[in-house]
Design a protein around this nucleic acid. Structure first.
Lengths: 259, 259
DNA sequence: CTATTTTAAGTTGTATACAAATGGTACTTT
DNA sequence: AAAGTACCATTTGTATACAACTTAAAATAG
């Protein structure tokens, strides 16, 4: 009578010690993260339709759990579900994008104030890995690698937010706006973008090493401001900023005058 | 061949000019708001189970759209869906509650900075109505009336937030935390609570009349701080603050020392 | 009588058939 | 030829039957 399922869901047999079968909730969460990543990496670009039946076939489930995931993505502003048409990946206009970025900048500063988290050696190691990856991006224009780096960097920064509600909101806002930056990447100077990323990561690392959480979020805030400015300038046909050399943190006061 | 549905969904007949049949999305939204209000008014108190079949029967739909609504409420943190058990209205622990209130306080200040909105005569009229309702709450301990007033006041303040993302977040956080305040209302001094509400509304109205949005959010922030302090003190058995007289805005510096 | 197992009732999760809506295409009419 | 109309393929929305899960009570073994 061994090897029989017990009340708590574990098994007696030592052959499969703690491998619990994937629960329904876990599966939906896995599908959710998969689709969200595809949206963030532009595998599903803005305005593309993704279709419930297609996804149901790919993940070997019915439309029901797929619908659940897509509705979640809808509530989070990543897709738009149109009856009779399909599920369309949202495209963001400049005004909304500016609102999201302004909010992210403010929330980034907040995250250092509301229940801050201690910076550990693991965080620093993770960030060093990010710096290495940034350095390796020079030259080849690997948009996917850049996007993956941005996502992973975001994940590390999220783990430094102590307030859970703020963490969820920051995560939401990131995925809501990040892919728009990627869409206009092909039109910008690749080496400059990568250099920016490298500098930011490097300066963030320096702040982490002196246990300066407030300094970290300042670096992040400046990075967000820089991206927003580049986007605005590019969309308005004014490439003056994007043609400048990469900006170092020490010059940030020149760029940060409010409005 | 008149009175036939046209491509754009309108009708030729003048008898029913622009009364479009309620669309699926509209119906789900209506059910969503209904259930959310019930949760906020403690008609569905924390830890109560609400059940999909029951709701489906009440709204004369199948479980499918009900599930859609409940999952939305789940993503927003208002309910917890447990397989085989039911949909349980979430209860919030003190730590989470403090995190939410701290965040709301910061976001309230932000809302005056990020794309502020002009205060109109309509806003002032709405707020005057709130003040009247607050005054009428004295004496009778009308918890439902108080809760409705809080919800309506929240709605007015939301309409003064220009940034749409910030507006959605503020709305979410309000409904996530407001009902917890209501649950402990029966144990507090009713007349004092009402007097607080009246004072806050009155001072907010004064700020609105001098077109001082920043002053408004300061009043609101103070109110949130006041509520949070009362909750903390009550839960720790220390009723020293709740036994004080109502606090006027002018005394707020005594209460606002950080931490 | 106690501890364990079985059973049963009730709930959410999934699959599927069908209804409703959209957008394009071919056809008809003027 | 141009405008309108009916049709149709495709997609999301809904209803419903069934599967999986949880809980508690009842039955059973010690």
């Amino acid at each position: 009578m061994s090897n029989i399922k017990k009340i708590d869901g574990t098994y007696d047999s030592a052959a499969e010690p703690q491998v619990r079968r994937e629960t329904s909730k876990d599966r939906r969460n896995r599908i959710y993260k998969t689709i969200r990543e595809r949206i963030s990496l532009l595998i599903y670009p803005p305005n593309s339709v993704i279709g419930e039946t297609e996804l149901a076939g790919e993940f070997n489930v019915s439309r029901t759990p797929i619908r659940s995931v897509l509705q979640r993505l809808h509530f989070e502003g990543l897709v738009q579900i149109r009856t009779g048409v399909g599920t369309v990946v949202t495209d963001v206009d400049l005004k909304t994008m500016k609102e999201v970025y302004d909010l992210r900048m403010s929330l980034t500063e907040l995250s250092a104030e509301l229940s801050p988290i201690e910076i550990t050696e693991e965080h620093i190691l993770a960030m060093e890995s990010m710096l290495e990856r940034a350095k390796n991006l020079h030259g080849r224009r690997d948009s996917m690698g850049y996007a993956l780096l941005c996502n992973d960097l975001h994940e590390v920064l999220m783990s430094l937010i102590g307030s859970k509600p703020l963490q969820e909101i920051s995560d939401n806002l990131y995925y809501r706006s990040a892919r728009i930056w990627l869409t206009m990447l092909p039109n910008l100077d690749w080496d400059q973008i990568v250099t920016d990323q490298e500098l930011e990561t490097s300066e963030m690392l320096a702040a982490m090493r002196r246990n300066d959480l407030r300094g970290m979020v300042q670096v992040r805030r400046f990075y967000l401001h820089c991206v927003l400015t580049r986007i605005s300038d590019y969309l308005q046909g004014n490439n003056s900023l994007s043609s400048r050399d990469s900006l170092k943190m020490s010059e940030r006061r020149m760029q940060r005058g409010r409005d």
